[in-house]
Write a protein that binds this DNA or RNA. Structure first.
Lengths: 340, 340
DNA sequence: CTGAAAGCGCTTACAG
DNA sequence: CTGAAAGCGCTTACAG
């Protein structure tokens, strides 16, 4: 390339970074003719930066994580950074594998850990790779930046809503209790009920894995009880869909026989049979905030200050899938939908 | 690192690639103590390979593309490759920008082009970066590998379904006609109707951009006509959701007043009000096939043979959102749902 | 089996 | 303003 333009590589390099150069015409011509692009690998080797951010989420087909990733990308779009994306599929092993590889390739990592107990992510920083948690925290992760939501408060909102409707036979189908959201949503829900004198018996207190299938299965097992609950709280969007499918399949009237409340809104939430009552939270915005925190850490001027721990609020969206127990099913159309 | 173990870098390198080495104990110890990982940048510079695949889709929050990307990742998981993900947001400019950057960073690219007319992707191969199209083709892209679906056939299936139900006032809300799927779905639909003697007048033949908002707006404009259609074909999942929302908002009975048929199934498809009749197609599988094609191109043993052009079939899934025109609205529960 | 050396393609402090 | 040179951290053919 330099030869083609009749100059030294140093001069080409200077031209590319916008310095004034005598032979800029010859260089530009050579660039155009050769379709020349500087090698990212060589630049990385020299600079020690890859301009790449690793993002590891449990499942990109979960609309929540898709929105979070899109939020991240909206930030990197105007920056020189690109996103290296990986799924952990809710598995610590896959997460560890992919982190080991990413650490060599990226300037920083945003992670939604598969479990709270995994130690591996804590070692990522040993490799001098800044780490930000999104959606989920890690036991011992307080030293790291994180963007979370008030899962405990969200569980409380769900419980208060069901209590206000008069439910006393209330079930929870939780995500893995090894995860921050799985544990805290359940705790917020169960403890709020307990304070109101409503106990959740073991057979109503079921634990799954945040996947649709477990929402489906756990709901079926609730329905097979001699005395099924009158209301069900599902721990995330996919489990809620699974629960909804199970209720449909078993021809259960919602909310006539059973009320259903979910965590995380869905694009289709208002269009479902019935429209879903959910605890909603920011998605796109969480991604934006997490990426901003990380880029700040990558800024050479960053003082390396204390970890930023952002906790966002949840919000109840009442639709038609919840109603007083045994109450007459209220047709969706006549019920006032509160929506954003 | 090499110094720490008291050997040369060459020996460390040999150890890492599994060759027999005398001082393997000292090396392993040094690796463990230092948390040493070989630099990906240096390896890339040396080998000329990045072990990274660039994936550019219009919108990762579209469940179709999320599933396609997950399919791709299921292939790379067992390979040394990682995925660099970018959204074009249906914009050629953003696509061009990101491609220019990716070309320097990746070994190959899988692209769902924002328009058929863009020339830029054709130049990607000038940089010796293999390119595979997924979901959408490019004018002049025949020389490239591609994994597509039979969009024309899908449009035909939709038309035949509505014809069989007896519809004659039929509307299409299409995606951008600058894209393969936008153009071909409309053509297959309109031409099949025409052969049966059903013309789609201009006011029923509307064009949007594959986003939910355009589905919403175009459906509203159909409803404002003096004589609205009795059936609507929406060009993708997001436009179908937009159409559904518009019909709900205007209190239109589906399928009593208007039948709605979409392209692309949704996870929530069977749970919607009413359950949606759609033209379905493989999603995950498309991603798998596209990634396999690309990895084959990257195989040094690949003969560089002809372009592989894979075209997958679509399949009609009849649910409750379509019925004969003016027919009595059939309650979802009593209608037999044909599902996968 | 092992080390010295060259080279991948950049960038930048140093001389000119 | 410009070039020669060094160096980023690997890998590999070459000698030993």
């Amino acid at each position: 390339m330099a030869a083609r333009a009749g100059v030294s590589p140093a001069t080409v390099s200077r031209f590319l970074r916008g310095q004034r150069v005598r032979s800029y015409e010859a260089i530009q011509t050579a660039i155009d003719e050769l379709g020349y692009w500087p090698s990212a690998a060589a630049q990385s080797l020299k600079s020690g930066r890859t301009n790449t951010i690793g993002v590891v989420v449990p499942d990109i087909t979960n609309p929540y994580f898709a929105a979070v990733v899109k939020g991240m990308e909206s930030v990197t779009r105007t920056e020189p950074y690109r996103i290296l994306l990986a799924n952990s599929d809710e598995s610590s092993e896959q997460e560890d594998d992919v982190l080991a590889d990413l650490v060599r390739r990226v300037d920083g990592i945003i992670l939604a850990p598969a479990t709270e107990q995994d130690e591996t992510p804590l070692h990522v920083r040993d490799a001098d790779v800044p780490l930000v948690f999104v959606d989920r925290d890690l036991a011992g992760g307080e030293r790291f930046d994180a963007v979370l939501v008030d899962n405990d408060g969200g569980g409380r909102q769900a419980a208060e809503h069901l209590l206000a409707l008069g439910h006393t036979r209330v079930a929870a189908i939780s995500g893995s209790l090894d995860t921050t959201p799985g544990r805290l949503r359940r705790e917020g829900f169960v403890s709020t009920l307990a304070k109101a004198g409503v106990e959740v018996p073991p057979e109503y207190d079921l634990v799954g894995d945040f996947k649709e299938h477990s929402g489906y299965q756990l709901t079926l097992s609730l329905l097979s009880l001699p005395e099924p609950p009158t209301a069900v709280f599902a721990a995330n969007n996919l489990m809620t869909l699974g629960a909804l499918k199970a209720l449909h399949d078993m021809r259960i009237d919602i909310p006539g026989q059973i009320s259903l409340i979910g965590f995380d809104d869905l694009d289709t939430g208002p269009l479902l049979r019935p429209p879903l009552t959910v605890v909603d939270r920011p998605m796109f915005e969480q991604g934006v905030l997490a990426m901003r925190l990380l880029l700040r850490r990558l800024d050479p001027d960053d003082g390396g200050g204390m970890a930023s721990r952002v906790v966002l609020d949840t919000k109840l969206i009442e639709r038609a899938s919840t109603a007083p127990p045994g109450g007459h099913p209220s047709p969706a159309r006549t019920r006032k939908t509160r929506s954003r």
